[in-house]
């Protein structure tokens, strides 16, 4: 068999023991005499055993306890009390998160507080953020008393958005993902003067 006939697929299948006996024999005869094929096969073997011999990593101690303590109170049983503003399909139970939320609200108000409202009429502000794997996204800020339950965002194609009428002024806000991860506004503060759209940058855990 000529080397240019040994395509990648054949060599890979040879390594994976997927060839019939006859083809495998022809191939192994070729590989013995062909440096290029020999090198590639040796490489595949090397990488494969490097990975399979690598030490196994165990879940951290207390993992199960941690998972169980984070479960919604009755998510698995379907007795979740629906919150009116979330579609029924969302199974995340906010009740179990409220303790953490309470703490976070205090935290948020200490760290982020300081709104300077002007007493003027409302303008519409749209908040928009791209988040692929979130289940529930809400908005909290000076304009809604930092209440994480007040302002849910709606998802379309991975983009979450909500429009809120607020008075002109300077505000601070956070996006809350799945009721537990708070993302403060990276600009620290927004200045709302007219109807506007705020594109919250894609985010990573802070």
């Amino acid at each position: 068999m000529e080397c240019n006939k040994i395509n990648d697929r054949l060599l890979n299948e040879y390594f994976d023991n997927e060839l019939d006996e006859k083809t495998a024999r022809v191939l192994s005869e070729h590989i013995i005499n062909c440096a290029a094929c020999g090198e590639k096969l040796a490489f595949i073997k090397g990488v494969s055993s490097l990975i399979s011999d690598s030490p196994k990593v165990s879940a951290p101690a207390g993992f199960t306890t941690r998972v169980l303590s984070n479960l919604p109170l009755s998510g698995g049983t379907g007795e979740t009390a629906p919150r009116t503003f979330f579609p029924g399909a969302i199974a995340l139970n906010l009740k179990s998160l409220s303790a953490a939320a309470g703490f976070l609200l205090v935290f948020a108000s200490v760290i982020l507080f300081g709104s300077r409202h002007y007493f003027q009429k409302n303008v519409n502000v749209t908040f928009e953020v791209a988040l692929q794997d979130a289940s529930v996204v809400t908005l909290a800020g000076d304009f809604n008393d930092w209440n994480m339950y007040n302002t849910p965002l709606n998802e379309e194609d991975g983009v979450w958005s909500v429009t809120v009428p607020i008075k002109k002024g300077k505000y601070q806000y956070s996006i809350i993902v799945d009721g537990k991860k708070w993302y403060p506004d990276p600009q620290a503060e927004i200045d709302v003067k007219r109807n506007s759209k705020i594109k919250v940058p894609a985010m990573e855990i802070i």
Binding site: Q132, D133, P186, P201, A202, M203, E204, I206
Partner: peptide
């Protein structure tokens, strides 16, 4: 999703 997001992470 996490890998994708990490790639476009704003803060990092």
């Amino acid at each position: 999703n996490k890998l994708k997001r990490r790639k476009f992470a704003f803060f990092s």
